[in-house]
Design a protein around this nucleic acid. Sequence first.
DNA 1: GGCTCTGATCTAATCGATTAGGGAAAATCT
DNA 2: AGATTTTCCCTAATCGATTAGATCAGAGCC
Lengths: 343, 343
Amino acid sequence: MIESAPGLGRAGFSVSMATIYDVARRAKVSTYTVSAVLNQSAKVSPQLTARVLKAARDLNYTINHIARSLQTRRTMTIGMLIPDIANPWLGLVVRGVEDVCSKRGYSLFLGNTYGDISKQSDYLRVFRSRQVDGVILFMAANSERELAPLLEAKTPLVFAGRRPRRLDADSVTADNHLGTKLAVNHLISHGRRRIAILVGESTLSTSRDRVAGWRASHRTAGLSIDSSLVSYGEWTTASACTRTLEIMRRRHPPDAIFASSFPLLIGVLDALRQLGLRHPQDIEVMSSDDSRLLDVFEPRISVVEQPSYELGAEAARLLLERIEQPSLPSRQIVLKPALKLRD
Amino acid sequence: MIESAPGLGRAGFSVSMATIYDVARRAKVSTYTVSAVLNQSAKVSPQLTARVLKAARDLNYTINHIARSLQTRRTMTIGMLIPDIANPWLGLVVRGVEDVCSKRGYSLFLGNTYGDISKQSDYLRVFRSRQVDGVILFMAANSERELAPLLEAKTPLVFAGRRPRRLDADSVTADNHLGTKLAVNHLISHGRRRIAILVGESTLSTSRDRVAGWRASHRTAGLSIDSSLVSYGEWTTASACTRTLEIMRRRHPPDAIFASSFPLLIGVLDALRQLGLRHPQDIEVMSSDDSRLLDVFEPRISVVEQPSYELGAEAARLLLERIEQPSLPSRQIVLKPALKLRD
DNA sequence: GGCTCTGATCTAATCGATTAGGGAAAATCT
DNA sequence: AGATTTTCCCTAATCGATTAGATCAGAGCC
């Protein structure tokens, strides 16, 4: 076999690509036969098979996925929306999604909503017009109303990370209630009694579940609940910093803080640094999300380890199953977090 | 105007979507007219315009991008390949790309190569079959040979972060030579004399440029160059840790280490922790990439701040220009890094 | 009025695949 | 051998847009 270039990477698009007609003509067969050979969708004699394969190779033929999609009404693409890909924990989630998708032949459209409802709607519209086969959504706060029609239309859609309160839909989330309970229990066992908790917007399931876990933990331990120690707000480092400063300057500041995500943790530590407070002597800090980082830096922060990669991978698996069997009853998968102590 | 559902988010795909034919029939016009109205590609009388718009609204019509793409031979999609989306600094780069793309109506396919050449080739093939309009590539080490055919075929392609050595192509990179020189100069000004440098595979431009900067800095300061202090290897935390352990156990260990990326830095710090060495007393560490993290954690590491977001945004802009004007001469954009001191 | 010109709209081909329906040759059965 | 079934492959319609070329009504002109 004489080949002009080494095996892989011969690809070259944009310059008049060969079509199935070109291959058919060169192999002196019909397009049906070419399609049958390349997709192995029907039996074709060895002679023709060989001719087709040779012609395809000679022409450096690659299927045009756009044309196929138009005909089959399946694009083998899925769309994923997240608040911000620069958030490392979301990066891990996306990696989980992407690994599963690519393994099954799907390509991934990625969009950042920055938590903005109208951006989220815009992207969903784009995904619709691009005929994606399904969507994985890390939903923006307060966007339940906008999403209801999607679900009614039976769009394959999986909620990742955050689940809608009222809607009956597929979702994959971490057990934030449990995770927070574990963390708060641990702080209580260290003798902490005034434990503040920083979460995101109060409409997010993640915020609600975590606060519920915090409450449960207090109840079980027989501690009184001081609601002023619960801080809802934006999911940002800046907001966490501001909120921590405010809380720590009160007359009765807390003796521990649970920051329910990595960006919030940074804000908390920034504030404590500004106030000259040290962990764990002056105040004990715990967080959600994990990161190799925390292993090598000071202060040593114990965390509730989120199953980020698994969350993404599981969401993708769920979505692909939903795409294949649209009438399946909806499933809510809840992954268990684990406590990672660094005392 | 009577509407059954509130403005946004009425989208609903998967259940038999209306086509341009449906709209045409309902408005009692031809598909030509519908197309002309919706794309504003030709003048249409006010009456027909109104009828078309109403029909489109009534049917909740959304264009089928797949069908349009087949006809126009432009998909308004671009593909991006990076080693690993879980790397926060790459997350920022992707954010830059995605912002620019979405603003201009392009959607983004994302793929992780994990630095694997064959994965990279596979993805490029997929991108080709999906008819992406262009590609942004954070190339895998040693993959120049595979990429040459792409460039010959005039595929719109922009190299981001790393540039190929021999190929004449569009690229956006940071000035790693300069960045490293600044860092090493700074270490030298602190009296450090044996400065180790950890980089990635020796075939990557980023590695070569950084080592060149390190050499230049030594030359300018009149210091002798000890090549055993240059460590090439995998771009991973684990590899950096192993390599640091090896280097520090030598008879003449260095008194400073420059880790040329965040993941490498983590490996270095991990190794130093294992060896019980402290920064900056025992050894001074600097790094590339920045992160809010470094502001709030100990030890306080000074870094060469990479223009990550800008790098992505600039790569996207370059690519879109290239798509619009394929015959433009190739351009290599080099962004300046800045020293961020935390002594 | 008849002719030309302009501008709005329509008809129908096209992009590149898939695939139902059909036909001819080969294989099997009587 | 003739009838029937099976196998393999082809023809042509189709997916849902865009758009060149055709059509046709009305405006402008002599």
